[in-house]
Design a protein around this nucleic acid. Sequence first.
DNA 1: CGGAATCCCGCGAGATACTG
DNA 2: CAGTATCTCGCGGGATTCCG
Lengths: 114, 114
Amino acid sequence: MTEPPRQGGCRAIAANKWMMLIMYDLGAGPRRFTELRRGIDGISQRVLTAALRGMERDGLLTRTVHHVMPPHVSYELTPLGRGMLDAAQPLLAWSSGELPRIEAARADYDARAQ
Amino acid sequence: MTEPPRQGGCRAIAANKWMMLIMYDLGAGPRRFTELRRGIDGISQRVLTAALRGMERDGLLTRTVHHVMPPHVSYELTPLGRGMLDAAQPLLAWSSGELPRIEAARADYDARAQ
DNA sequence: CGGAATCCCGCGAGATACTG
DNA sequence: CAGTATCTCGCGGGATTCCG
């Protein structure tokens, strides 16, 4: 066979549009819910909760509740999540470097079509 | 600054959940609309059209219309799109290899929560 | 063949209020 | 603080039909 779990793999990495941003933030170390919320521009509480649940379900991060007052929940990449982040580094670097070119292409396209 | 276009970059690569699959298919060479549609499981005509438009707008692929009968439209990666696919290779390889682990984590999570 | 146009439904996601 | 719960609305996206 050529590349059997290709579609599944592609779907897994594109499952959630916030996943990459969350992984990036968690790459620097554990984060609390509110830290993630503040660090990710435009995400709502509800959607962040859902994204974190999905990633926890996929085994990419752990969710640890500290029963103190006030409550404290911290999220941290698992080895699996760390591996995915490592594998994504070239793409993240590319997207940072080439973003201006993409934005230029968009402006060009929009101008052409008015 | 540390990494300024990070959010923009992450959004650009997660903009469309079909993008990676389309890019993967186009990596092997130009494709016609119907070939892409058949090759991508579960995508509808409307959604494929929209995804291709978005990628064309981002400068990742070109759309070439051949005015013959019957009509013929072919899509092909630009150098920019090719660069993105190259940068995505480690992540694609990772997702293919680790997909079983992700699926196992999901099954485990679902079993635990019933 | 490769769309565009139209209709329409359901889920994604914002806002707000409430809890352990 | 870190969620759940509820209500609401918009638009993402399926099905179908028409066109060059």
